[in-house]
Every structure is written in structure tokens, then in C-alpha cells.
Design a protein around this nucleic acid. Structure first.
Lengths: 179, 179
DNA sequence: AATTAAATGGGGTGGTACCCCGTTTGCTGG
DNA sequence: CCAGCAAACGGGGTACCACCCCATTTAATT
């Protein structure tokens, strides 16, 4: 990769990061290219689809969540660790406008999508909770990720606190504790 | 309302209905106007925002769900009735492309939005389940609708069966039955 | 320094939402 | 029955968007 190409790549990613934080996942690519000081063709060459750009923007956030999952593997209560991590994912997705949409709507054929990465990062937490007996074995990590991202997307307007609350509700279920 | 205005209104709604079924909630308004045989200005005069058009398109579907909620009020098991209804909402939202997005993303200021209607229709089912003791009293109908619609939106690609499965999971929670 | 292939970006194409305003059309009172 | 009027209409304009072509520039290599 040539030096100028690499420079433009980073410029685009950081411009996109700012634009998405301000305008959401459907920010204008044209405007991103303009504010990065490159032509629109350059942006489209580096990132053939909108989602490939979003993935690049969110990659470091995703990696942060993976690290956090690693940390939580040694927490005393496995269910609480899983629940905490999922709530953190929800908060990240809600505050980082467009992350949830990016994860959910990314075309399935993209192999190393954000979703896959998070699922593999979280699965050890789920397995530990299953071994502990506090989570049903038929609950798949992919299902939990779908739920969390769905909630984050839906609660975009309502805010992170609301998203957290709904994640907790979905994990607990609607029945009373003793029922 | 003049006769021609009324006729164009219905034409636009039925053209929109077809277009949305084919292309989803982000179908081109321009194309809808064209296939309805009216100018784009006419469409924009009748429906100032995209959401107002979507609401008109989905109104009868929503009413169908309200009727169904009424029916289920006499079912023997209150929790099952609530759960059944929510799953039916999910199936409707998933199959009717764009309904979930319409309900979730509609601006809050629209008073008689689809969401409000469904919440009031479903609340008796929730109350009955609370009285029965099978649902925690702190669970609000609005929360359940948000969950269901979030799941429907997320499972748009995966299909109605997946949406139903996830709704069931969210209502049950992740814990084992006897836990 | 000359060569070469990669990278660039201005500008074109075809699409979109939304609005202005001259024209047509349905309604109604005489 | 018809004349006048307000309501409704829609063509065409503006401003924006994604995406692509291709002549030009530029970084790396010999």
C-alpha cells in the first residue's frame, strides 16, 4: 500500500468517525470525503460499500468490547458477568450512533463482520453461565447479540439508560422471580 | 375533501402499499407517485412526511391486530394470550416489510402513531397477566412493544419464524425454568 | 533521473426529496 | 344551467445523493 493511499485511508476513517457521531450511520459519504480533503472516488475505492466504511470506523470500539469480555471471564458470578457485558455492548451501540445498525444490517456474506467478532468474544461468558447452571443451554450467543443490538437500535432515541433497562428485562423475562 | 383529492389519496395509498411490500419502507416516493398516476407534489401535499404515508398504509393492518387483541382477552391463560399476541405482532411486523421501522422510527410528536395504538390495544392483555400473577407488575406495555418491534426489525432478513423465536426468548428470559 | 503502475479527483450520470406556481377541475350559488 | 372561485393538481426547478469514468498526478523502483 502506497504512503499516500494509507494517509488518505486514515483521513477518511477519522472524518467518517466525526460525521457518523454527528449525523448517524446514514451520514453523507460525499460530505465525509469533502471533510477528509479527498475526492469522492477515493473514498469509494477504499470503501466499496457503506458498511465497509462503518466497519473500519467501529473496529477499535469492537476491539475494546472484546478486551472487556476477556476481563469479565474471571468475574465471580458468571451470569452477572454475561449480563454486564451485554449491557455494556448495548451502551456502546446506543451511544455510538450507527453501530447497532451497522452490525445488524451488514450483509451476511461479509465474513469478518462486527457481529461475528462480538459473538466469538462473548461466547465464553455464555458458556460459563451455562456451566454454572444460570443460563439455559439452548440460548445461543448469536441470539443474545441479536437481541442486544435490536434493543440498541430501537432505543437509539431514548438513550443508553433505556437500552440497558430493556436488555435487563429481556434477560430476566417477564415472569416474577418466584413464579 | 374534494372527490378528486379523495380518489388520489386512495390511489397513492394502494400504490405505496405495493411498493413497500416490494422494496421495503425506504421505497422511492417519486416512484410511488408515478405508479399512482399523480404528480410528486400531490403525494407530498397529502403526506407531508414519509411516516405519515407509512401510517396510512399500515393503518388497516394495525386495526387487525387490535381486533385480535380484543379476541384474546377471553382466552383462558392470560400469559399465553399476551405472549401469543406479541408473537403475532412480531410476525406481522416482520412479514410486512417496513412496519417495524415505521413504528420504531416514527417521530414521537406524532400523536396517534401506530405504536400508541398497539400499546393501548395490548395493555389489557398485560394487565390481565399481571393480575394472574404471571407477569411482573413493573413490566410496561410500551417496553414489550419496543422489544417486539426491535426484534422484528432485527429479524427482517432472518424471517418471521426467527422473530417469533426471539420474542419467546425475550419473554422467557435466559434463566432455566427451575432456576 | 527515468520509468511505471498505483492512486487520485474533477466531473458526469442517474437517482432522490421537496417545493414553487401557472393551470386545471370540482363544487356551488344564482 | 352556468359562471365564478377556491381547492387541487402536476410539470419543472433546486439541491442533494451514490457511484463511476478517465485523464492526470505521484510515489516507489531501477
Amino acid at each position: 500500500m502506497r504512503a499516500d493511499a494509507q494517509r488518505n485511508y486514515s483521513r477518511i476513517v477519522s472524518a467518517a468517525s466525526a460525521a457518523i457521531a454527528r449525523d448517524g450511520a446514514d451520514a453523507s459519504l460525499e460530505a465525509i470525503a469533502r471533510s477528509a480533503g479527498v475526492g469522492s472516488a477515493t473514498l469509494h475505492r477504499h470503501f466499496p460499500s457503506r458498511w465497509s466504511l462503518l466497519e473500519a470506523v467501529f473496529r477499535d470500539r469492537i476491539e475494546g468490547l472484546c478486551v472487556r469480555a476477556e476481563e469479565l471471564r474471571t468475574a465471580p458470578d458468571a451470569l452477572e458477568a454475561l449480563s454486564t457485558w451485554l449491557r455494556e455492548v448495548a451502551v456502546y451501540s446506543t451511544t455510538t450512533r450507527g453501530l447497532a445498525a451497522s452490525i445488524l444490517n451488514a450483509p451476511a456474506e461479509e465474513s469478518d463482520s462486527c457481529s461475528t467478532t462480538l459473538i466469538s468474544a462473548g461466547d465464553p461468558l455464555r458458556r460459563r453461565a451455562v456451566d454454572e447452571g444460570s443460563v439455559r443451554p439452548d440460548v445461543a450467543m448469536a441470539d443474545l447479540m441479536t437481541l442486544v443490538n435490536a434493543i440498541s437500535l430501537a432505543a437509539q432515541e431514548a438513550g443508553a439508560a433505556e437500552a440497558e433497562r430493556l436488555v435487563t428485562l429481556a434477560l430476566e423475562g417477564v415472569r416474577p422471580r418466584g413464579g
